[in-house]
């Protein structure tokens, strides 16, 4: 593949990886606190719709972006209520949340179909954009991409160096011990659910505000599920989430470019590439011992009176 194709390919990898990256990091925070929320797809849809709607209504895309996260966090609160309040099974609650969220977004969003929205366009960063190769790949993007560069570092530092981050991790690893040590397990898990939902919603908002400035039914088209998979792929580490999201986006962009250049390989076989490669890379990193364990108490509810 010629170099003048590789640079736009990698730039496309970054852009198409970004909504998945936000969502992956969000789900990662939730899972670190010991709660599995399979409602990512539903929360992304709600995030995408509310961001689109609110920025259109107020003319302020930043407000829309923020509210995309807030509304998704409100949806996540339903998961929190069912699982943390009522001890409901986290798998079913998450799946139900996806069904509900996707339905609600499509229901409320129908009048907005065909409306042109406002949002973020690409802004080259001064100086950085002039770096050869890297500048063209990383610094000719929109503001929300730049924001997403900072997130993994922040989340990594949060879990490693702050008390709150440590507490959050400990309720995900051993809630009984955490409770004995005087931590408010349910409260911390609520924090994980809401904060995670917020970030997932930002991923949805990225789609409707920056990737493409419009709303249609089923806008997220399964990206939420990819995020669920990438949390595991990343072994619950923010750095590897970046790798996973860009890898997935990059392989998808690659197979499209392969077609554009002309190939005889059937499209359905090419479409398998991103999924197959995700598994293969995961197998490779597990075998070379770079694997990591899930939070020990993931998807296990903390029983009251324990």
């Amino acid at each position: 593949m010629p170099i003048e194709l590789i640079i736009p390919l990698l730039a496309a990898a970054v852009q198409s990886g970004t909504p998945i990256l936000y969502a992956t990091l969000g789900e990662m925070i939730t899972e670190k606190s010991g709660v599995l929320n399979l409602g990512v797809e539903g929360m992304m849809m709600i995030g995408a719709l509310s961001a689109f709607w609110i920025s259109l209504a107020t003319g302020n895309p930043w407000l829309g972006f923020l509210m995309g996260g807030v509304c998704a966090a409100m949806l996540a609160a339903m998961h929190g209520l069912v699982c943390l309040g009522f001890q409901g099974n986290q798998v079913v609650s998450g799946l139900a949340l996806t069904i509900f969220g996707v339905g609600l977004a499509n229901y409320l969003g129908t009048p907005l179909v065909g409306t042109q929205g406002i949002g973020f366009s690409k802004v080259s960063l001064p100086v950085l954009a002039d770096i050869p190769v890297l500048g063209a790949i990383l610094f000719h993007q929109d503001v929300l991409v730049y924001l997403s560069f900072a997130l993994p570092v922040l989340i990594w530092a949060f879990f490693r160096y702050t008390r709150l981050g440590l507490h959050l991790r400990s309720v995900g690893e051993n809630p009984v011990a955490a409770a004995t040590a005087g931590l408010n397990v349910i409260g911390l898990r609520w924090l994980g659910v809401l904060l995670g939902g917020f970030l997932v919603g930002l991923g949805g908002a990225y789609l409707s505000l920056a990737y493409i400035h419009l709303w249609t039914n089923g806008l997220t088209a399964g990206r939420g599920w990819i995020a669920v998979a990438l949390v595991i792929f990343a072994f619950w580490r923010p750095g590897r989430a970046v790798f996973g999201a860009y890898l997935f986006g990059g392989v998808m962009a690659f197979q499209l470019r392969l077609q554009a250049m002309g190939t005889d390989i059937p499209a359905s076989i090419l479409m398998m590439l991103p999924y197959a490669l995700t598994i293969l890379v995961l197998i490779a990193s597990t075998m070379t011992g770079r694997g990591g364990e899930a939070p020990a108490a993931l998807a296990v509810n903390m029983e009251p009176e324990e």
């Binding site: 079913v92 069904i99 509900f100």
Partner: peptide, 26 residues
């Protein structure tokens, strides 16, 4: 009623039934 309403209904039913199961054990 739009098709999406069916999903809303289904999601709500599942979430409430699930929350209700709490009372089986507590």
């Amino acid at each position: 009623v739009p098709a999406a309403f069916g999903h809303i209904l289904e999601g709500l039913v599942l979430l409430t039934v699930l929350a209700g199961q709490f009372f089986h054990y507590y």
